[in-house]
């Protein structure tokens, strides 16, 4: 089991010894099941850190903000940022290292193991609780979620409330870290792409109908993009600012700039947004599933990224986020890459 006191102690020492600027970790959220990201600067606040089944956020996303902040400062503090990462999140760090977005010295990684479980799917838990508010949630040693509500405690088997991504997760514990918490348990999954296969087995029309129904719900809040640690582009194709304006840019040039995707949530535009996002994450997505979790309309966005993860593996034998020194999927090739589709 991950010993929270160890985590707190290490965090305290890091801050006391001024080895890190601050620590990005988890703290108690305001709604019972979900934890919330915490940014801890003072040693005395390390007591607020938590580690529980509601720690689903991928905190590496905040390295984006840190990088931007640092770029604005005149005399930036060069110390690393302490960050709490799970197995999936640690692969995100590897990808960011691989893409040279961050340097290894920029982060001090407190790796926590998911051991035999993972994080919960809030919606699944809410269904089980039938409107009751959870006060505390934790895993017991027999893969049960122990939920404390005002009516006492109940046990729910992990497989009924685990997030789908955790069921399909191949790692479970950090692959890159400075300090490791918990046990390194070897776990294999035979269902890594089960959710993708469900859709693959549909007919072409069924596939289209499925996605049409899903994307029709999209309100283009871009939460999927905003929460993603890999969506770090300064300018995204969907933003209308993707156009350099200088002092001598004429009005005509401004009027003729390319608008790749309109703001309107019409089917064509929404489809293109989601397809492009998926393509852009090919060979980069580490399946932390945050895009799907944050979607207010429950669009299974993760299925898109997972599909490309599967293809990268089966077509090009490429796995994401294990080796920071490997070449990225789309900037490398092999002579024997498939080309049977080419005329």
């Amino acid at each position: 089991m991950v010993n929270l006191d160890d985590l707190k102690k290490e965090a305290l020492n890091l801050l006391k010894d001024e080895k890190v600027k601050y620590i990005i970790g988890y703290t108690e959220g305001s709604n019972g099941t979900s934890a919330a990201p915490a940014f801890i600067k003072n040693p005395e606040d390390t007591d607020k850190l938590v580690w529980n089944p509601g720690c689903f956020h991928n905190l590496t996303r905040f390295l984006r903000d840190e990088k931007k902040r640092k770029a604005r400062e005149k005399h930036p503090d060069e110390r690393p940022v302490g960050i709490v990462v799970k197995g999936c999140d640690s692969r995100a760090i590897n990808v960011l290292l691989q893409e040279k977005y961050i340097k290894r010295d920029d982060v001090f990684i407190l790796g926590v193991s998911c051991e035999s479980t993972g994080v919960i799917d809030e919606k699944k838990v809410a269904k089980k609780l039938k409107g009751k508010k959870a006060q505390k949630i934790e895993w017991d040693t027999n893969r049960n979620l122990v939920v404390t509500t005002e009516d006492g405690t109940t046990k729910i088997p992990a497989d009924e409330v685990l997030a789908e991504r955790c069921v399909e997760c191949p790692v479970h514990s950090p692959v890159v870290y400075d300090i490791f918490f918990g046990d390194k348990i070897k776990r294999t999954t035979d269902a890594q792409f089960k959710s993708v296969e469900k859709i693959e087995n549909l007919s072409q029309k069924e596939k289209w109908d499925f996605w049409k129904k899903q994307f029709d719900k999209c309100i283009r809040c871009y939460a999927c993009r905003s929460v993603c640690p890999m969506c770090y582009c300064d300018e995204c194709v969907v933003d209308t600012i993707s156009f350099a304006v200088t002092a001598d840019t004429t009005a005509e040039e401004k009027a003729q700039r390319i608008k790749w995707i309109e703001k309107s949530p019409t089917p064509s535009e929404t489809f293109i947004y989601h397809i492009i996002r998926a393509i852009h994450l090919a060979g980069r997505c580490i399946d932390c599933g945050e895009c799907e979790r944050v979607c207010p309309l429950d669009i299974p966005i993760r299925f898109l990224n997972k599909k490309l993860e599967k293809e990268a593996k089966s077509l090009f034998d490429y796995e994401v986020g294990f080796d920071p020194d490997q070449l990225s999927l789309v900037s490398s090739f092999k002579d024997e890459d498939p080309e049977d589709f080419i005329r």
């Binding site: 940014f39 905040f62 309100i219 207010p296």
Partner: peptide, 21 residues
Amino acid sequence: SMSCIRCGICTYLCPTCHCFD
């Protein structure tokens, strides 16, 4: 705002937010 990810959920779901383009 430290933990804000600058998505648009809060305003798009708000029954009073009315900004437009």
